[in-house]
Design a protein around this nucleic acid. Structure first.
Lengths: 346, 346
DNA sequence: CTGTTAGCGCATTCAG
DNA sequence: CTGAATGCGCTAACAG
């Protein structure tokens, strides 16, 4: 005698219960693979489920279990080079554990992204991964403190209470780059930075500065900054090279700017790598067809994303909130012709 | 006297009601901006909301309204070149309308992705956008028939009942490319296709074939296929060029393969564009630094994604299911040096 | 092994 | 203008 103003196809647990002539509980138990169900009953219920194409409503379930089996994945820029890889990495891990991802781009105009993050929580996500570049520590800390769920940050090495951060080891990367250049006989290393994303850039710059001082004794290497675009990188690189004619190597913030640097070298009649060695970061595939092919720092975005997912899951299982833990990911140097050392002995 | 085993921070509508000394209904009305609330009461409630940092639980709301304000975005490959743009486009539109995106990668091993799509529905999404390349029509049609919500497909021009499809106009693109080549004096056009993604590839190939016949009279242009990687493209292009020495232009499935073609031309001592013109598809930024810079077909991924979102929303508002509608997106030809016509009169 | 009772947090009736 | 009752679809806790 109860009404049923339902959505067309979807049937509910009650429909199944009626069809199998059992109570809702029994259906619930079958769905949850609960052991205490008579084999014969289980079969009848399974048939009914099949027949009615029943799929449990995860929102209703989440309401009572207080677990949505859903994680939020918030990013600052979906057009970031690493976004696809990172998203794919989290997704793969999520699928394996029955989780889903709610993906959103942070509206940084809205209180530095806090608004978006809060709305994400209203969707009932069990945890949040943030793939930032430029979110400041204060915003992150404030969010983590009030979120009531585990929070991890990908791509930022920052010790924030209640947050696990997962990032590439910039110090190790800088060591790899500088060591490689110095080994190739380069002594005067210039740096081309990104004028955006201050938080990330700063870490990378400081790491490079230290490595350069350590390996060459130069305390303040020449540096220039520009937009992370090919043309802007070209312009900035030209300025860098003209201001510092003695430079024999350029480390660019990323491969895009490194390509701009290659063009700038062409503009100035400098031969790469003989006159100038060039290194980028990211390992984008087109580095292989650049002229000359680009030496670059590669990071395992997928692996980092996977680790982010697992960190969230672990926090949930342990019931313990994350605590400023920092997972450092080791970079790899992909040597190609732009540093002239592609294959030292072949 | 009711217990409250809640999540740490989160307060519910009842907490707010108690704090403001009103009933839950009144709070609900204030949140929904319902007009029939006394200004003074509204203020008191708003204060309470502020004080308790109350955020409505969207799952609970969705349960009763049968609207989650959430769309599913299913993709076949998150590492696809267009994924980031497409995701960003949908996201921007979604945010504007208070919607959220549940993003998932389809597990094509699992019944062609049906399993993933069905699970998506259990999350209560109000509609689904699918960004495929290789999902077959039958899977899509079957899903749309049983989903009970609007479904749009991005990147496939296929007339499927109950589905809106949004795709680039391959015929127009082929016309642009071939017309441009012929105008530049090219007569023997070879085609380099992708051996994966049969559905998409086929449409592109047929369109090119027609345009070539239309413009040059050649009925079956030389064609070769390979994996969409630089090296594999290079190999396939070499085969194509060696088999057909009279070719004076190559249209590649995408920019990646076009870059492989550039390398192959180098291998064979062919000068681009004098001996061979080369065109790609996608408009990836690195086309600009290829040697020579690559002429390419650009599609507005963001615009298409935006249209996909709006299509879903419209279907929802109108209550009418989509009906095999096809929205064709116009491509643009970005002319650069690889076709030798970069700037005809400058 | 199975059914009953009691909500999860919210919005939609309908009375006042 | 506001409150009381009812139930969305589901599971947890307890009976039996």
């Amino acid at each position: 005698m109860t009404r049923r103003p339902k959505v067309p196809g979807r049937s509910t647990i009650i429909d199944v219960a009626e069809e199998a002539d059992v109570s809702r509980q029994t259906v619930s138990r079958v769905v949850a693979n609960h052991p205490r169900v008579a084999p014969e009953t289980r079969l009848r219920v399974k048939d009914a489920i099949e027949k009615l194409a029943y799929r449990p409503n995860r929102m209703a379930r989440a309401l009572v279990t207080r677990m949505s089996l859903t994680f939020g994945f918030a990013t600052v820029d979906m057009q970031d080079l690493h976004f696809g890889d990172t998203c794919a990495g989290m997704q793969a891990a999520a699928r394996e554990h029955g989780y889903y991802l709610v993906v959103t781009e942070l509206d940084t105009n809205d209180n530095g992204g806090m608004g978006t993050l809060e709305t994400l929580l209203t969707l009932g996500v069990d945890g949040v991964a943030i793939f930032p570049s430029l979110l400041d520590d204060k915003t992150l800390e404030q969010f983590a403190a009030t979120s009531g769920c585990p929070v991890v940050v990908i791509g930022r090495e920052s010790k924030i209470p209640n947050i696990v951060s997962i990032a590439m080891d910039e110090t190790a990367a800088a060591e790899l780059v500088v060591d490689h250049l110095v080994e190739g006989g380069k002594k005067r290393i210039g740096v081309l930075m990104n004028e955006m994303f201050p938080e990330v850039v700063h870490g990378r710059y400081v790491a490079l500065q230290r490595a350069i001082e350590h390996h060459t004794g130069v305390e303040s290497p020449p540096v220039e900054a520009g937009h992370p675009k090919i043309d802007e990188g070209r312009t900035a690189a030209r300025v860098l090279l003209e201001k510092n004619p003695d430079i024999d190597a350029v480390v660019a913030f990323n491969d895009i700017m490194a390509m701009g640097t290659l063009l700038a070298c062409g503009d100035l009649g400098l031969r790469v790598p003989r006159d100038i060695a060039v290194v980028g970061y990211d390992g984008i595939p087109f580095g292989a067809v650049a002229n000359p092919p680009l030496t670059t720092i590669v990071q395992d975005s997928i692996g980092m994303a996977d680790a982010a997912f697992m960190a969230l899951l672990t926090c949930l299982k342990d019931g313990s909130p994350p605590d400023g833990e920092v997972l450092l990911w080791q970079p790899e140097l992909l040597v190609r012709a732009s540093t002239g050392l592609a294959s030292p002995r072949t």
